[in-house]
Simulated assay, not measured.
Amino acid sequence: MTIAVGVFELFTYAIPGSLYVALFTYIAARAQWIDLAAVLKSPSFLLVIVVVLLSYLLGYLAYPLGLLAHKILPKRRKRDVTAEFLRRNPSAKDRPFVQADPFLLLAAIQLQDAEVGADASRVRATGLMLRNCAPPVLFGAVAAIVELFAGRSPVFAITCAVLFLIGGIALVVQGRMLGHWARMRTLEVAFWIPDIDDKFRP
């Protein structure tokens, strides 16, 4: 269980946070607020610890930005996980677990078999990671647009701006897809647990 929680937090917070650290470092160095060469001469062990802590904290603090990006970007189509699952598995129509809250259902699966439940958790964590990586990538697009006017390589700047913009949107879309897969995976696993319905009967 400890490994599963560690993986979830690494994917959901630390990896997106590292992108914020990279972005802020670039802006600070470009604006000459810090001497990057001097920073890189610091003891490696201490530098790694600072980067890891900053990444983790920024990932937590910036989590709402990922949620905001998820809400703002329009959805091309609305996908009902439960309806799709029942269409593929009509024999599960009258089973109580199908209508249960997905997070409560995942907790029930983890109580039954932590290793099996960890699979759905990893897919969900990956989806959240992609979604939370979108804002710093989009901010990178804004920084590239500024570099278009302030820098000396306009072609490189506009190329980066376009790639970052497309990449940020793609991250949100793929994050949604993995979130859908995680909910579907939760239902599929629960289907094969014989007594899972007893936990959701009134």
Rank of each mutant, 00 (worst) to 15 (best):
E9T: 15
P102Y: 06
D35M: 04
H180E: 15
A29K: 06
V21K: 05
L86S: 01
L46T: 15
S18F: 10
L171Y: 06
V39F: 11
I49S: 08
Q174K: 13
G127V: 01
Y13D: 04
A144F: 00
K93P: 04
L10A: 09
L58N: 04
K41H: 10
A143P: 07
Q112H: 13
P136Y: 04
P136D: 05
A150V: 14
A118P: 04
A143Y: 03
E147M: 09
V189N: 05
L58H: 06
V189S: 07
A190I: 02
Q112C: 09
G59Y: 05
G59K: 05
K93M: 10
A134R: 02
D119T: 12
P43A: 00
P43S: 03
I145A: 07
P96W: 04
R88Y: 10
T186I: 04
E188A: 12
Y20L: 07
V155S: 13
A118W: 04
L187H: 04
W33N: 06
P90M: 02
F8W: 14
P154H: 03
L138Q: 00
D94A: 08
T82V: 15
L104E: 15
R124Y: 14
G167W: 02
S91E: 15
L178A: 05
E147P: 05
D195T: 11
T82I: 15
A157V: 02
A107D: 12
A161D: 02
G59P: 07
V51F: 13
G127I: 01
D80G: 01
R185S: 11
M1C: 11
K75W: 11
P43I: 02
A190E: 01
V162A: 08
A37C: 08
R95H: 03
R87Y: 13
G117L: 00
I34H: 03
L138R: 02
P74Q: 02
F103S: 15
A157T: 00
M177F: 12
D198E: 12
L23I: 03
L73R: 01
P154R: 05
R122Y: 13
W33E: 07
D94K: 09
L10K: 08
I145P: 00
L46N: 12
G168D: 01
P16M: 06
L128H: 12
L65C: 03
A107T: 14
L148W: 10
P90W: 03
G167Y: 00
A134L: 05
N132Y: 02
M1F: 14
D35V: 02
T25D: 08
R77N: 12
F200P: 00
N89M: 06
L73S: 05
Q99N: 11
R79K: 14
T2L: 14
